[in-house]
Amino acid sequence: MKQKLTKLFPALYRMRIIQLRLYRHFTNLNPALTYAKHRTQHTLPYTCKKHQSLLRRKLGSSDPILQENKITNLRLSVAKMDGIVIRPGETFSFWKLVGKTTSAKGYIEGLLLSQGGVKRGVGGGICQLGNLLFWMALHTPLQVVERHHHSFDPFPDDHRVLPFGSGASVFYNYIDLRIYNPTQTTFQFRLWLTEEHLKGSVHSNELIPHSYHVEERNHRFLEKDGRTYRENEIWRKVIDRRSGNTNREEKMLHNFSEVKYDLFSTT
């Protein structure tokens, strides 16, 4: 009902965004939170996880120029975040580092997913950076304390590498990706772009005792009330490095999203 009202009355949607952003600004003042803000170009010695994602993929019928624009936006965002160190007790916040993506800072129009559809907007496309960070964090003992996922699946799986639903949506500033360090180990994200990929790695100042394997389970498409939905679970195995034994298995995510494309046209 709320989404229908905001579509009918765009001013209500804009007012709601202002309200949510002001509330997040207020909650950011919480003195109990210590945000990660120190960056260094000296890479910590132990590599926990590396990953890369294609910069250009076929995304339905979307304008390919918007993907080129996305690359510009990613470069600007990566420059604000590469080398960030998350010390014990600190919280990584995507938006505390990137800040508001405005044209004055060089950001241009890219793809945005909003209100159940695909739109154009300044700074669009940097969710890809959130996806990369979230996936790497799942392979460490860091705790993801805030993560959002779109309620709809907008594009078919053309060159999709990671399981459906393993990304993280970001929208300034109240839809954030936040990662807390509950350990006594210091972690660091390194991020960069090549001609074809967005690349990243997460490092630590000491060897962590476990490795992590993340996998999809119980994936399915289903029909409900005349609409198509996609559902799955993301599980993580925590593996002892010395013995190779799996210490435990954890269900990290349950995803349920409306499919916005024609399944039959993608086969």
Results as ranks from 00 to 15, higher is better:
138 L>K: 08
148 H>Q: 08
143 Q>T: 11
155 F>Y: 14
172 Y>P: 00
116 G>C: 12
147 R>E: 14
133 L>W: 05
135 W>G: 02
152 F>Y: 15
141 P>D: 12
154 P>S: 01
135 W>T: 02
147 R>G: 03
127 C>I: 01
163 P>C: 11
123 G>D: 08
159 H>I: 04
161 V>T: 12
186 T>M: 01
108 I>M: 05
153 D>A: 11
125 G>R: 03
115 Q>S: 14
130 G>A: 15
179 I>F: 08
119 K>G: 05
140 T>W: 03
185 T>S: 13
110 G>E: 12
135 W>R: 06
135 W>L: 07
143 Q>D: 15
111 L>T: 09
164 F>M: 01
157 D>G: 13
116 G>D: 10
174 Y>P: 00
105 K>V: 06
136 M>Y: 00
163 P>S: 12
174 Y>M: 01
176 D>A: 02
141 P>M: 11
133 L>G: 08
176 D>L: 01
141 P>L: 10
161 V>C: 03
116 G>S: 07
188 Q>S: 11
153 D>L: 15
146 E>D: 07
169 S>F: 03
134 F>S: 13
124 G>V: 00
110 G>L: 11
116 G>A: 10
111 L>D: 12
177 L>C: 06
118 V>A: 14
111 L>N: 10
176 D>T: 01
186 T>S: 15
156 P>H: 01
133 L>S: 07
149 H>I: 06
183 T>Y: 01
172 Y>N: 10
118 V>R: 09
175 I>Q: 06
168 A>H: 05
177 L>Y: 02
160 R>T: 13
119 K>Q: 15
123 G>M: 01
135 W>M: 05
115 Q>K: 13
165 G>V: 00
106 G>H: 06
109 E>F: 00
156 P>V: 09
125 G>M: 03
122 V>E: 09
144 V>G: 04
127 C>K: 04
158 D>I: 15
183 T>R: 00
184 Q>A: 14
160 R>P: 05
149 H>M: 06
162 L>M: 15
156 P>R: 08
122 V>Q: 09
171 F>T: 05
110 G>P: 11
176 D>Q: 02
116 G>W: 09
147 R>L: 12
112 L>A: 13
127 C>D: 06
173 N>F: 03
148 H>V: 00
110 G>S: 11
109 E>P: 04
143 Q>S: 14
138 L>V: 01
175 I>E: 11
173 N>Q: 13
137 A>G: 09
176 D>G: 04
165 G>D: 04
175 I>N: 02
137 A>Y: 06
160 R>Y: 15
155 F>Q: 01
124 G>D: 10
159 H>N: 15
182 P>E: 09
166 S>E: 10
166 S>M: 07
162 L>D: 12
142 L>K: 09
119 K>R: 14
166 S>I: 00
127 C>T: 05
174 Y>H: 15
126 I>N: 09
